[in-house]
Design a binder for these strands. Sequence first.
DNA 1: AGGTTGGTTCGAAAAATATCGAATCAATAG
DNA 2: CTATTGATTCGATATTTTTCGAACCAACCT
Lengths: 106, 106
Amino acid sequence: MATPANLPHPTRADLDLPSVLFALSDPERLDIVRQLRSGPLDMADCSLRVPDMPKSTKSHLMKVLREAGVIRNEANGRGRRLTLRSEDLEARFPGLLPAVLDAPAQ
Amino acid sequence: MATPANLPHPTRADLDLPSVLFALSDPERLDIVRQLRSGPLDMADCSLRVPDMPKSTKSHLMKVLREAGVIRNEANGRGRRLTLRSEDLEARFPGLLPAVLDAPAQ
DNA sequence: AGGTTGGTTCGAAAAATATCGAATCAATAG
DNA sequence: CTATTGATTCGATATTTTTCGAACCAACCT
């Protein structure tokens, strides 16, 4: 129940389309991904729609995105640095991420 | 508990990205969508991975795809005609469907 | 008319996800 | 060193989704 320095991430080759689509199919998670489009973000700076969301819930959202290979989650000082895995996603599923991100916001 | 001649379908403007992504996030449903890429298909001719799937389960898969606006499901003689709503999806989420369909099969 | 085929709907049970408090840890601040 | 901050994990509960039999219906036979 610690805060491991590095969490497991799937390799590019292991990216699975249904898992990626599922991770992106939640408005809250999609919103996080949209925020990461312009570049990496400290998890603490990543704003949620639900402002008073418990941190365990927030952590779980990140876990789904990370395990699907959508984001990278690395230790960074006291917090966490989140990065959108654009290149890996583009290599494996060309055009998918741009199409999702360019879609009209709900 | 009847077999209504026409089922409700969302309009193009009502298409919701998370719902569409969710509908596509299941391997079985994605497989159905792939089969519809080349054109409409009678539901009976639509082959499933699980060959002995109960018809109520199969019907439920179609319901999720239909309610998300991914496919159209119309009465056709004794059976049902399934059509991929490519144009509506392309108009609302440009590039999304091609990206999903062109992605390497899992 | 009666039987068969193809498919939807309901309802209940099973499985998967989400939510969130508590415990825990690591890095930093004081 | 001690306290605070930022975040993961566990465990339990709540919610959502899936599965599937039963009932039902409409179209097509014979």
